[in-house]
Nucleic acid binder design. Sequence first.
DNA 1: GGAAATCCCATGATATCCCATTGTATCCCG
DNA 2: CGGGATACAATGGGATATCATGGGATTTCC
Lengths: 159, 159
Amino acid sequence: MAFRSEILIKLDKKGRVLLPAAFRDELPADDRGAFVLYHSPNVAGVVNGNSRSGFDAMLERLRIEALGTKGALKVALDDEAFDPAGYLSASARTIALEPDGRFTMPTEFAETLDADDGVTLVGKGDKFQLWNPARWQARRDADRQKMAAFVRGLSAGEA
Amino acid sequence: MAFRSEILIKLDKKGRVLLPAAFRDELPADDRGAFVLYHSPNVAGVVNGNSRSGFDAMLERLRIEALGTKGALKVALDDEAFDPAGYLSASARTIALEPDGRFTMPTEFAETLDADDGVTLVGKGDKFQLWNPARWQARRDADRQKMAAFVRGLSAGEA
DNA sequence: GGAAATCCCATGATATCCCATTGTATCCCG
DNA sequence: CGGGATACAATGGGATATCATGGGATTTCC
């Protein structure tokens, strides 16, 4: 289960988006009917996606990581303390897939993306992202530079 | 069964509130007709909600983990000892859902929320919360900062 | 008997279902 | 290996169902 590739998908006037077959195939076989979209916790304009189980697994890791000295029970009861997993849950929505693999983009995410007629789906391995196509181009170009520099750094260290 | 998303719902002049479909769908299939509301144990103005079974499971966990088997037994018999699960039970009410998914907000919770024409429902995974919309905005903005800081902290540790 | 809760019906907006089209892979057959 | 034939991917659009909400009418309960 690893999301790969980068695909530009139409956003039709009804607000529907196709989850490409390459991504649908990465959803767990027993839960292909729905997945999760959630706002990026630290990048405005980016929406993340994952299978329900993938999202839940991330929350689980988060809880363990963030718990520290506090017990799970305290986190469950304490409404005052900041709870990263709870924060992500609030920013997430379960999205039902139509039989043909499309879904209706909720308004909140459409606004975040600020996309009018298309969305770029980007595989990130253990999750995927939705980008405004133009913004993604810019980001990818920037990443290309960083990747080249990163690889240079690797070879230097190995020599 | 995980409550997600954040939805602003009208509170009409009859005091009715809609439990959104996204939340109703997370109630156990065999118990969709009612759920539980209870006051936050440590934040004034916040009301928590869960399925009946979810609420019961939390109380059970509280009894076992916080008190131990012996302690739970003691609390069951000793009316003098403080019983956190009993305290929560007293602050809770079972709420019946109308066929169309709405419920009448009990006065005690309406007063706690201090909401006049709307309530924000917030999914927290294991439970959900009702907030006064304005107060929720403030809380969410604060949480957004904390989330960004939390993410920064993670990447620093990894480097 | 009257306030509060419940039932029922109405409505606009959105989401879902279903069918159709087109292009591109994939398959099959000799 | 060529040449359709076939399957499936991606998209468009009409019809239908469901969601969220308002409000009248009826019931419930001290």
